[in-house]
Write a protein that binds this DNA or RNA. Sequence first.
DNA 1: TCTATTGTTTAGGTGA
DNA 2: TCACCTAAACAATAGA
Length: 818
Amino acid sequence: MRTSPRRPLILKRRKLSLPAEDAAASQRAVTKSETDGRCDRASIEQHAIDADSDPQKFPAGIKIINHPSMPNTQVVFVPKHANVQNIIAALTAKGKECGSTGPNKFILISGGGSLRQACPPGAQEQADTETSIGGGGFGKAVNDSNMCVSRKLVDVKMGDGMLLHTAANITPNHKPKPEEENSTPALTPCPLDESLTNIQWLGKMSSDGLGSCTMRQELEDKENQPPVPQSLKQVEEDVGSLPCGSSFTSWQESIAERPPYSYMAMIQFAINSTDRKRMTLKEIYTWIEDHFPYFKHVAKPGWKNSIRHNLSLHDMFVRETSANGKISFWTIHPDANRCLTLDQVFKPMDQNPLLQVLPYDPQQKRILPELQKCAPAGSGVKSESLGTSSSTERKMKLLLPRVNSYFVPVHFPLSQQFLQQPSGKMPLSSSPSSSASTADLTKSKHVQIVPKPILQGASTSTYLPLESTKENAVVVSEEAPSAVVKDEEEDASLLSSLKENTSYTSLKPPAWRKHDVQMSTLESSQSLSYVSVKEENHLTAKRDCQFTVLRDDVPLSTWKEERTLTAAKSPARKLSDMQVIRRRKSSSRRKQHLVIPCAEEPLLVFPDCNNSDSGLVSDFSFLQETHAPDHPTDLSSAQDTCPFKTPIKEKLIKLPVSSTPSKPVGTTPQASGSEPWRVTSLNKEGSLPDFSPVRLPPGTTLTPFKDSLDLLGFSSPPFHDVPLFESPQQLLNSKSPDMTSGPFTSSPTLEPHSAKRCSKELPIGNLTNRSLTEGLVLDTMNDSLSKILLDISFTGLDEDDRFDGDNVSWSQLIPELR
DNA sequence: TCTATTGTTTAGGTGA
DNA sequence: TCACCTAAACAATAGA
Ligand SMILES: [Mg+2]
């Protein structure tokens, strides 16, 4: 039935001959479940029974009663021994009874009682109250009369903050009147043929009842075996095992709901959830299963195949092996890693008004996960997806629009401190003479600039404006470190890293407060370094940086910072020991030759300004190491080293990355001996290789820049109308009017974030400008890519006595310019 | 040798 | 057309 993964799973309602079930047995079952002493079940049921002294009984002792307080809601008590068929039969029968006017929400309560195992007594009491009365947890049930989705979920508020997703609706788009609730079943037409049961969590289950977990696991090992449903109890246990006190999205709570993330996104989430930004395949499996019970309980085992497929297919996922070659770690290519984590994709809507206007991606039934945030723990914020069939119960607000823009973190090797604040706080104006208040600038200066260019054939490193409008543009290109340090400790730390994968760091409540982030030069270097500074803090990394403010090809300034690697804390360790072992393609099926660390890859130095620069290349280039190529082997195989080989991109840009006949190699002219992928990573539209799980539907334009894309051309000098900033202050005081009206202007907030090894993200110590982080999730890799927004903050310009307003010079800001 | 796991690649389908 | 999903073939590898 489910012919497409995008198609919601719908159980066709069938006429079921409800097997007569011994009422006594049913009652026994229920009673037994009550006497299991699991938290508040008895209380719940008792209360429910009190509210409805005549619960309807269905096969296997399933009882359905009206919710004591919630209209259109019924409580379904599922005895332990009831199987899925029983539940379906009961719901079907109930739905048939009530017809279109019947309750459209059902709260399923399993008789297993294991749900409450983890609940402390106090919490149980609370749960009892909330659940039975229906005011707390039940009250959160979404009851959107306008919702067009066919599924509604009812949360059962658990004692410790957990939410149990248990219910599904029966009648979509129908909000029965209260007086219709108890209508005689036989008297009303039954619309359930189309709708019953969009009960995904049931639908995924096979008809052969509830299999044992063990059996399921055995079969699950065979990836091509159909999934075996788990018992409700097991499911509930797993659900209950989710961390308490955290805010969960429905797919995190429910085994029924498939997470609205692509595999690629989930893999990124998984990998980025670790400090080292790497995971073994098994760890990825585990992480996904832990965070998305759907995959643990419902999804076919073939999802693992898909994971592997994605890992292999997408070039952003790079496999590295331990020094001994026995362990393969999957990492995200530093150029592609935006450090997407699960906690970044949702944020409380009430804390970011901007999000409320953010569009829903019509091309994705699933909400753009990367553009969403979830309510923080305990906030009680229930959200609902923006519009749509994805219809998660909670209100999901897009974090950022799927616009043709994204922020480019700019890493300044400044001795001055950085201060970043939400751009929305920034009274940036379109010109230095604007009304930007000094007071606002006192704390932070933001510059959001630079259109993201789409240029065909662009091949250089600097950003090009998409338009020759009046926008001020700052072009910043920076070399970012991209080395992956490997050493023998990898293996030793494997176990620990395995443990950390299950942490729920991503579930921490988003911090939507401003942070004045400061960093020293050293901190900057460390945090910016792709090497495992945190872990390998004996490394001190400097890197070449190029900072270019362009106007008509005139570089305002550039600097370079020499990057060195030293073994400060571990002198005994030689650099060679820390070489990245990255596989490259090989003839082997388990291909990918071992490659040298990125840090030692040939440096590609782009011209500071080049009309043909796409900016996209810069996006890569500034992330590259600038070491001299001390590994000729890597040089010789520059073509082969392109890790990005998404077929589409390859087809379009002929990236010489393929090791297969279907992926032509070497069709792209070598660009000055540099790694071609760094300079020719444009598809026909000039987009970046797609590292992003976020997709922007063609034609989507949320910023005014889009329309000016066609203004770009190779014949036009970049930043034709871009003023040249004489000073940082001027730069900071200037802002494109478009930006002020853009969707980003009010959103960014700061949140502590580990940013190492993340591209397009400005790590500042352990803190990262939230705006940058969020900006990273924007997909700029597709056709609609139109803009790059620079988010630059200069902290301390006002605090520092050395700086005197507009008198601040670049040389002051950048010591290298002196 | 067998099996399981892991990794790569191709192919086909679906929805927007 | 594209992104994404799913399935599958195939191979390398590790371990029993
Ligand atoms: Mg890959």
